[in-house]
């Protein structure tokens, strides 16, 4: 039985919207357990978003339209990105909208506006966050491109659906180039999603913040959109990693059985990914901001080694 791709696309976006907060809740839960604490409910992030959505917005007196527009844009870009990455099926009408490079650029436009919003209200913290974010992004970008390069060598494509198809058809993770690219991707994803060794999403210390510093002045529905988009971004990066390196289980032809099985695989892989993420976050302190150079430098190194080992070893 065939299912229409547009239907799958709708389902996928719905999955993204609601699974992302749950995934964030799950990460939080595992993290609490790893620290020996009682965890909040899995649905806590959902409740937080609901609460924020129902609150009024308090806006700084001098905030311009950029500040008000940014949450919507960031949200929109993230949702669109979610329609492109194969989460449960590769046959997506939106898949051809962007390959991996364009996808990275889509996230970059969200970052561009977030950084501008950070500077819009004209505080020391906002500008500081923007400056740090743009610095880290510019270091992450070359590493990201190298990782894409390494992966695309194997699949001869930068289109995500194509990567899923190629990698799931027998290409194994034993391939050194993919192993290196995965390593690089993990480091980059930690930096891009603002997780612990680079940024601390749970901190209240304005002076050390990166992403939070830019969005300090947001409230109400604006904050809800930003937070939601942030959760989706984390979710999408995990899913991106899954699609590019562990695609088994994603439906490659649109038969019903495959599509029904896909979410089960997804849940399993997400659960494991969260454990991995928590292990990294619990085991590491946040690094000094200028150490990020070395961190992303090693991501670049891994990606380059991946690319080299494709030519040398494969």
């Amino acid at each position: 039985m065939k299912i229409h791709p547009f239907l799958i696309e709708m389902v996928q976006i719905a999955v993204l919207l609601f699974a992302a907060p749950l995934f964030a809740g799950w990460v939080k839960m595992v993290k609490c357990w790893s620290q020996g604490r009682t965890a909040p409910s899995l649905f806590q992030p959902v409740r937080d978003i609901r609460k924020l959505l129902s609150k009024d917005v308090v806006l700084a007196e001098n905030a311009s339209w950029i500040f008000r527009f940014t949450p919507y844009l960031v949200f929109g870009v993230t949702v669109l990105a979610g329609g492109i990455i194969p989460i449960i099926s590769t046959d997506l009408p939106l898949a051809a909208t962007a390959d991996v490079i364009a996808l990275v650029a889509l996230f970059a436009i969200a970052r561009f506006f977030t950084a501008l919003a950070g500077m819009d209200i004209g505080t020391a913290f906002g500008g500081m966050g923007s400056s740090r974010e743009m610095t880290i992004a510019s270091l992450a970008e070359p590493a990201m491109l190298m990782a894409i390069f390494a992966v695309s060598l194997a699949s001869k494509s930068t289109s995500l659906s194509q990567m899923v198809l190629v990698v799931s058809q027998g290409y194994s993770i034993l391939q050194p180039s993919l192993a290196f690219a995965l390593l690089a991707f993990i480091l980059i994803a930690l930096a891009e999603t603002g997780r612990v060794p680079v940024d601390n999403p749970a901190t209240h210390l304005e002076l050390t913040m990166i992403h939070e510093a830019m969005v300090l002045e947001y409230s109400g529905r604006h904050l809800a959109l930003i937070e939601w988009a942030k959760m989706m971004k984390l979710f999408l990066f995990v899913v991106l990693g899954i699609s590019a390196f562990f695609p088994w289980g994603i439906a490659v032809n649109d038969d019903l059985a495959g599509i029904l099985a896909a979410p089960a695989y997804l849940v399993m892989k997400l659960g494991l990914a969260a454990v991995g993420l928590v292990l990294i976050e619990t085991g590491l302190a946040k690094m000094r901001i200028f150490r990020v150079t070395e961190f992303l430098g090693s991501a670049f190194l891994f990606a380059t080694l991946g690319m080299l080992s494709f030519f040398i070893l494969e």
Binding site: L174, Q175, P176, A179, F180, F302, L305, S309, L313, E314
Partner: peptide, 16 residues
């Protein structure tokens, strides 16, 4: 051969 390549990659990685 595949595994051996991977191990070679790891040897290189540890060297770095």
């Amino acid at each position: 051969a595949q595994i051996n390549s991977l191990l070679a990659a790891f040897i290189l990685l540890t060297a770095f």
